[in-house]
Amino acid sequence: MKMKAEKGTVFIFVLPTLIFLLLIFVYPLFFGVYLSLHSTREGLRLLSFVGLRNYATVLTSELFWWGVRNTVIYTVGTVGLTVGLGLAIAVLLNRIKSAVWLYRALLILPLGVSPVVTGMTWQMMFDPLSGIINHLLSLVGLPTSLWHTGFRTAMASVIIIESWQWIPFPLFVIYAGLQMMPQEPFEAATIDGATAFQQIRYITLPLIAPILGLATTLRFIGAFRSFDILYVVTKGGPGRATDTLILQAFMESFSYYRFEYGLVVGKTMLVVTLIVSIILVNKLTRQVGS
């Protein structure tokens, strides 16, 4: 039901945005490709052309693949935790009749907290010696943990932090989906004597599958590029326990002045994001949009 505009009018509307993106996104993107073909060995002023050597070096390095491993764990972990818990809480919230407004107002709060503050707060709470969490655990007789400072526990800890921040997002997306759902199948199921669990399993889930897919995709994109919390809490440590691609790219570029590494990693991440989003977004816009 779109109208036809006068010839050329559309440019007035669309062009400013496109020109802006051309300057701040497309041009840097290609300039970045050009820079990534150079070496900074002689300093940032004396770049030397090395062709695809940076790509070969990075993509065959142990460090890069370790970063890939950590990125996958981090992404899968946070997406699973946020969508899983989000779904559970949304279903529960949907079945509550009173005080919903209050729960909604409280549950959404983490989305407003700046990730940097989130990271620092949890760092404080996770401190193995002076943190509140170990203290509470020991008060009730549970084992304590090294949390983000332990090689084996650091990844789980940052996943918990990232998840705390982002659970409200899938939660409310799914909740919105639940609210839009037709009531008839449930009424019929109740009459047939289906249990609550059966209703969720056989009616709710299939109905909100597209919404669930949307939440998962968007969380994937968010987790894949997550930086703030990791940078603030562990900077990739201890050792390289939480060293993800984006942290590597950042540290190499801005701490070690070897920006070719950062560029190569960045380009690789861009390609992955593009592939994933083209597949998923196309699928989803068809499902959700209709």
Binding site: T17, L21, I24, F25, Y27, P28, L29, F31, G32, L35, I221, F224, R225, F227, I246, A249, F250, S253, F259, G262, L263, V265, G266, K267, M269, L270, T273, L274, S277, V281
Partner: peptide, 22 residues
């Protein structure tokens, strides 16, 4: 529309270094 979606999906790290120079 899709191009604009992409801008929301990429990490700033993808353009941050060239942007720095520019």
């Amino acid at each position: 529309g899709f191009f604009l979606l992409i801008t929301r999906m990429v990490s700033p790290i993808v353009i941050i270094i060239p942007l720095n120079r520019l």
